[in-house]
Design a protein around this nucleic acid. Structure first.
Lengths: 342, 342
DNA sequence: CTGAAAGCGCTTACAG
DNA sequence: CTGAAAGCGCTTACAG
């Protein structure tokens, strides 16, 4: 036999029509058990695999999902936010469980070929991860909705947003970690993170922070908040320096991401301040490094395992035209030593 | 227009045959500039995208590569070796540059459907990452070669191996880092890592270690080596405890991976030993965490950026039936504080 | 430079 | 339960 065998080859060997081979291999109930068994045996023997291109073309879908990872244009080539990486693991596994293949692509926010995968029938739907400025993203999302593209997005669940999102309850998480800091006796808690509308995740974490403070009878001091949009150590470090230079009294820092928290700890160390003795530091995300810093970082864990599952399950429902909705996953405080507990 | 437009729709609007549309869009020189321009404009306007399934079926290839990530069966669900993750980034980017799509899948070593992607025409070739025991892998690799599957593998470049590999020069890396330790005045250097034939990467690092010792006029003390195959913190920690319990004099530890080095530092700390004052510790891989441990870890960096590029370039050459060969990339010592330098 | 036609390898109504 | 036939949307020899 020259080249890969086709269903005609199997049919020939089995003494049936090619149509029957196709039915048998797809598990159609219209084929007798005996015929099916014979066909399967021959297919296995000849190492026959259904040609996906032909099958997909005929069936008009690809049983493939595309994962689009958007990166900060600022970020260095080799640096991927470790948080997205842990999501990648659970997405891949969830896809495998559902029998879907996963195509992966890194994109710049500026590109606008998001829908290409679906338009060209390479994928049945899109998973969007790591979106940058929400305001910029919003119009692109609207475009996707308009084109009828199937997609789900990881990120803040925002009122009236285009399409559907799976995100963590940032507000609750921000509140819980702030309450934890208050319970340690901290009173002057700074917040590092952009609180503009372009950054709904961080703003929601900030809202939770404000709620916790107010419930404890404390005022929210705007002096204690610094904007920091890119979630990197460098940005966190600079933000912390700025805060220190500003000079308000301060006994704790809540950074809107672990990477920024790590940068903040560095800036504190530079300034001769001890964590957690002088200043408590907490982050958000619970990236793998969080347990390895010195001191280990108290943070808020998002359930990436469940998130990945939900992302693919929701997308598949959408592809099947079943009803879907955005969901917000609970966040969980992970206490380590940087907050002064224990 | 109902549904996605096809090349016939474009042809109709442009007043040409469908064949001409196909030629124009594929950049055939047989189409007049004027016709091509008209067709492109209409295609853009109708948001037409060539159906990949049809195109791939007709052309008998998919312009897609599949990345197979093998995990230790031991490893926890959410834990991916951070080293492979950084490779993933450069592979994705290299694929994009070459115009290939990337399919990704996590597999158990026990599965044997490696070739499925290619057999079913979903991908033109395979990239294998994170192979476990080389001896087990070897027979699978032979199977792939036999079936004529296109693949490249990341890993040790072993004499007479089936297929081709891109790997780092583990021998040179192991030697360089050991020489560095010797230059710090260390003399009793332990090695943590499996040195069996099943683990050629670690054995090669060990060979480099032995060479450096001998060149310095020192004996290789088998008491100072402990097997440790799985590259995790826990395994490193246990290995270090074992070494300590064994009780030979020891002023430095070379762990065959960063993750194991981190575990070793933990075990040393448990035992009340100070790194690097009492014992120097170095690792291998330069994973992102390496700079964040306490003290920051001296290690050997592999050029993951170049590795990713080479992996996809080599695979593409192979797909095009051009000659290819295995290559070994140089490794570079990254000095931080855990070795007692500076 | 352009068109008509065959064919890539399947799946699935349709007829029996 | 099975077969003959149409068709998914392209690409590319072949003829002009």
């Amino acid at each position: 036999m020259k080249g890969k065998p086709t269903s005609f080859d199997i049919a020939y060997h089995a003494g049936v029509s090619q149509a029957t081979v196709s039915r048998a291999l797809r598990g159609s109930p219209l084929v007798s058990a005996e015929t099916r068994r014979r066909i399967q045996a021959i297919a296995k023997q000849l190492n026959y695999k259904v040609d996906k291109n032909a099958s997909n073309l005929r069936r008009q879908h690809s049983v493939t999902l595309a994962l689009l990872l958007f990166e900060d244009p600022t970020s260095d080539d080799s640096l991927i936010n470790p948080f997205f990486l842990s999501m990648l693991g659970s997405i891949t596994r969830a896809c495998a469980r559902q029998g879907y293949d996963l195509l992966i692509s890194f994109q710049q926010l500026s590109d606008d070929w998001h829908a290409d995968y679906q338009d060209s029938h390479k994928a049945d739907g899109l998973i969007l991860l790591g979106y940058g400025d929400y305001l910029v993203a919003r119009s692109k999302l609207e475009g996707l909705v308009e084109q009828g593209t199937h997609f789900v997005r990881w990120g803040a669940v925002v009122e009236g947003q285009p399409g559907i999102s799976i995100g963590c309850d940032n507000n609750q998480g921000g509140r819980a970690i702030t309450e934890h800091l208050l319970a340690q006796g901290r009173r002057d808690i700074a917040f590092i993170g952009d609180i503009s509308a372009g950054c709904p995740e961080f703003s929601d974490r900030y809202r939770g922070y404000c709620t916790a403070l107010r419930e404890a009878g404390l005022d929210v001091n705007p002096e204690l908040q610094v904007d920091a949009a890119d979630s990197t150590e460098m940005v966190g470090q600079r933000a912390m320096r700025k805060l220190l230079a500003r000079g308000p009294r301060l006994d704790a820092v809540f950074a809107a991401s672990d990477l920024m928290a790590i940068g903040a700890m560095r800036a504190l160390e530079e300034a001769g301040l001890k964590v957690p003795r002088d200043v408590s530091v907490v982050g958000f995300d619970d990236i793998p490094v969080a347990g390895l810093t010195n001191p280990p970082l108290t943070t808020v864990a998002q359930d990436t395992k469940r998130a990945g599952e939900l992302l693919v399950e929701t997308l598949i429902h959408q592809i099947r035209n079943e009803p879907t909705s955005s969901v917000m996953l609970p966040a969980r405080v992970v206490v380590r030593r940087s907050c002064g507990a224990g």
